[in-house]
């Protein structure tokens, strides 16, 4: 069974923010909520690298573990989704998430954050696929349409890959082979733990 993952190839990412606006556009995410963001380290000096980050759909998802209402669920493809009808906006998932993925529409006093919103891997939510209700709460369900995440599809340099982890690992390994460097895969160890199958994961350090 396919296991959905993201890879961001820092050797390619040029911090163009297409992934960020693609997501906003596709899901009509409001101002202030960013399901995806691009972080640059060593900005402006040699060694500058950018990485696009959103929910990584972790194998052993910390958000899921700490949610007091247990509103997360995981599809058999490993996509971590949540139910906004249940969410109480406590922010615990945000504290737990290694990647800062969970977002809140408000940051008002008295803990009034509103319902948590995060990257859905473009897979919508618990409502019927493609329904208006699903779109309003979670955005489009591209997965049900047979499409991959909008952010990865539109990435300007194909730095950001989203899809079946095995295929991604293959592609990535091939890239590393061709260019002879940049084997570090950011975020994989944190998100997916140790490689499930040895050949299926790119050689990686770097978190």
């Amino acid at each position: 069974m396919a296991r959905m993952k993201f890879i961001c190839d820092a050797e390619r990412c040029i911090e163009c923010n297409a992934c960020v606006t693609a997501c906003k556009n596709e899901h009509e995410v409001p101002w202030g909520v960013n399901r995806r963001r691009v972080v640059t380290i060593n900005d402006g000096v040699p060694g500058e690298r950018s990485i696009s980050v959103a929910c990584m759909h972790c194998s052993d998802a910390p958000c899921m573990a700490v949610c007091p209402v247990d509103c997360f669920y995981k599809t058999t493809e490993g996509i971590v989704l949540h139910d906004k009808d249940l969410c109480i906006g406590c922010g615990y998932c945000f504290y737990a998430c290694p990647f800062g993925a969970p977002q809140f529409p408000q940051d008002g006093g008295f803990g009034l954050r509103g319902k948590m919103d995060k990257c859905t891997f473009c897979a919508g939510g618990p409502e019927p696929d493609g329904s208006e209700a699903e779109f309003k709460k979670y955005g489009r369900n591209r997965i049900a349409e047979g499409k991959l995440p909008a952010c990865a599809e539109m990435c300007s340099t194909k730095a950001l890959l989203g899809g079946d982890g095995d295929v991604l690992a293959d592609i990535y390994r091939q890239r590393v082979l061709v260019r002879g460097k940049g084997a570090e895969v950011w975020g994989w160890a944190t998100a997916y733990g140790r490689p499930e199958q040895k050949q299926a994961a790119p050689a990686g350090k770097g978190g």
Binding site: A144, L148, V167
Partner: peptide
């Protein structure tokens, strides 16, 4: 819940999204 999703995802992986399609789409 996961069944519904897995159906749709499995569906596209099985029928419309073979490896080539995947490479192409991405």
């Amino acid at each position: 819940r996961s069944g519904r999703l897995s159906r749709s995802v499995a569906g596209f992986l099985g029928n419309t999204m073979d490896r080539r399609t995947f490479l192409k789409r991405s």
